[in-house]
Each structure stands twice: as structure tokens, then as C-alpha cells.
């Protein structure tokens, strides 16, 4: 079942096409990563799904219903975490979470609220006003709010920005955990994080989707594996994948994923005693990211 369908979405600010004919969908239980440089249109896209922004063309469906016609029902299915921190002048952490649950149409479930506050390490701050929290804590509060009403679709706009490493790991664990209950669309600038978590990713730049697909497939299709070999002797053994010598005297080869390291060694016909050291660097989303951004700059 498709939880989210975005069809030919166009959102303009004056003459700027912030989101330009974007289409994708998210299946039940899927984690989808939206990646791209600053100003690519990620926040604008997420804001359009949660009806913060009105779009000009296309349509968005959540659980099969158009967001334009069923805004309030759809918003009750979605847990949204904005990119910008909210200050909340008057209220304590727990009060805010309770009110938010009520806003979503769900009478506050105190067990769930306590569970989430503990899970996100906000338990000892629950009676503090928000302005006395640190930046990372405020961000965690945003996640707790997004989850309080057990949404079917989670929209997380940079959930781990400014969160320390330990907590980032626990947020990852949590995201993998709740995958059973809901689908997740999130943006991040940490590509390693996306690689670990996402079933599928889309690269977006200047409002357009540049690449999209299952994370592992994209890596194997669009990146190469770098193999670095240090010879014991000063010999010249190369093939068509040879890329040159690195600073620390390693010979560097760049292999497509269809060509294994075994193939390479066989082709080079290297004797074992010629090899002093051998390193393999897998391709990553970062490589794709760089190529996506660079193409556009040219």
C-alpha cells in the first residue's frame, strides 16, 4: 500500500521554481531519504505535504487521499518535525507534548508520552520550560511531538542536526524500530546516516529530482569501488581501470560494481609477493551527491 504519493509537484516562489515537477512515492514501512544541498527544495517539498505551503501544480496523496481536499484528516495521519526550532514561551515540555497530542485529535496518552520522553532522554526536563533546554534537546522535543499521536507517516526535516553522536545513534535505532508502525520521509545532510537507514533515497537539486532509487542499487550503479594496491617492487602493472598513483605510493584502480576485486587481481595477474598492501574503498552516497551537485554547477 502506498502511504505517500507525490505527483508532478510544482511549487514556485515568484519566478523561483523551488520544487519543479517532482514525483515519487513511499510504501508502507519504508524509510525514504531526501538528500540535496542547501536550498535544494527539501523543506519546501515537506512543507507542501503537510499543507504549510500551497503548491501550484500536481497533487499529493497520503493514504490514498488528496491533501488538498482532506487536509485535516491527513494531518492527523502525519507526524511532522520542522527544521526550525520552536521556542514555546509559556509552557513546560510535558504540557507542550500533551497539547500537541490534543491538537492532533488524540486525547493525550500519558503512558506513551512518558515512554517517548524517556526514550529521547527528556525525562528529567519534563517540567522545565522549553527556553531552558539546549538546542539538541529542543530538537528531540520536536521528534517527541511528531510521534505522540502514533502517526502513519513521519516527516522529519533534519532530525539529527545538532544532536550529539550518542543520541544520534539512539535516534537511528528508534527510527529503525518504528519502521514497523509507520513510513518515514526524512532529510539529512549526513549521507552516512542516509546510507545506514534509508531503503530508498532521492537526490534533489534546484527543485528537481536528479537520482532516485533503492540505496544499495544507486551505489552500485552510480559509483565505483576504489582499490588501492601497494607493490613491493617498482613495477608497472595496469589495466583500463587504473587511475594513477596516490600520495602514499598506492596504485589506485576504480572499479564498477560489476567488476569484482577478484576479477581485477586475476586480470592484473599479480604474484602474491608483489603485493605489500591492499585497500578497498566502497562507493558511497557521498560520491553520488558530489556528482549531482557538480553537474549542476557546470
Amino acid at each position: 500500500m502506498k502511504i505517500l504519493e507525490v505527483k508532478n509537484l510544482v511549487k514556485t516562489y515568484g519566478s523561483l521554481r523551488a520544487v519543479d515537477k517532482v514525483s515519487f512515492d513511499i510504501e508502507k514501512g519504508e524509510i525514504f531519504g531526501l538528500l540535496g544541498p542547501n536550498g535544494a527544495g527539501k523543506t519546501t517539498l515537506i512543507s507542501s505535504i503537510i499543507t504549510l505551503e500551497k503548491f501550484q501544480e500536481g497533487d499529493i496523496f497520503v493514504c490514498g487521499k488528496s491533501v488538498q481536499r482532506n487536509a485535516s484528516l491527513i494531518k492527523s495521519f502525519i507526524g511532522f518535525m520542522p527544521q526550525d526550532i520552536i521556542v514555546h514561551g509559556y509552557f513546560t515540555v510535558k504540557e507542550i507534548v500533551k497539547f500537541y497530542s490534543g491538537f492532533c485529535g488524540v486525547w493525550p496518552n500519558l503512558d506513551r508520552i512518558d515512554y517517548l520522553l524517556k526514550k529521547f532522554d527528556l525525562w528529567d526536563k519534563k517540567d522545565k520550560k522549553v527556553r531552558y533546554l539546549s538546542g539538541g534537546m529542543k530538537r528531540r522535543l520536536l521528534i517527541v511531538k511528531a510521534l505522540v499521536h502514533s502517526p502513519k507517516l513521519l516527516l522529519l526535516d533534519e532530525p539529527t542536526a545538532g544532536v550529539d553522536i550518542q543520541l544520534r545513534n539512539s535516534i537511528w535505532e528508534f527510527i529503525k524500530d518504528i519502521k514497523k508502525e509507520c513510513s518515514i520521509l526524512f532529510t539529512t545532510h549526513y549521507l552516512e546516516e542516509a546510507e545506514n537507514l534509508c531503503d530508498r533515497v532521492a537526490f534533489i537539486n534546484k527543485g528537481k529530482i536528479q537520482q532516485m532509487g533503492p540505496t544499495l542499487d544507486l551505489i552500485s550503479q552510480l559509483t565505483t569501488r576504489r582499490v588501492l594496491i601497494k607493490y613491493t617492487k617498482n613495477i608497472e602493472i595496469k589495466n583500463q581501470y587504473y587511475k594513477g598513483k596516490s600520495k602514499d605510493n598506492y596504485e589506485s584502480f576504480s572499479l564498477p560494481y560489476s567488476f569484482t576485486v577478484g576479477n581485477l587481481l586475476k586480470e592484473l595477474n599479480l604474484k602474491q609477493e608483489y603485493i605489500e598492501d591492499l585497500k578497498v574503498k566502497e562507493g558511497s552516497l557521498e560520491d553520488i551527491f558530489k556528482s549531482v551537485v557538480n553537474v549542476k554547477k557546470k
Binding site: S72, L73, S76, Y90, F91, E95, K98, F99, S101, G102, F103, C104, G105, V106, W107, N109, D111, R112, Y115, H149, S150
Partner: peptide, 29 residues
């Protein structure tokens, strides 16, 4: 484990926005 027991998109949001607003002025009484 956690299921939405009763979900009401008309009354509950109204009530909690009202609670919130009353709380707000009461905190700066």
C-alpha cells in the same frame, strides 16, 4: 502497543487549543 483509542478531529483539537489558551493567560495572571 500504542493504539489510538479514540480519535476525534473536531472536538479534541478545539478543546486542547482552548485549554492551551486558558493556560497561557493564567500563567501570566
Amino acid at each position: 502497543m500504542f493504539r489510538i483509542k479514540e480519535k476525534n478531529l473536531l472536538i479534541t483539537p478545539f478543546l486542547f487549543f482552548f485549554f492551551r489558551d486558558v493556560n497561557r493567560f493564567y500563567k501570566v495572571k
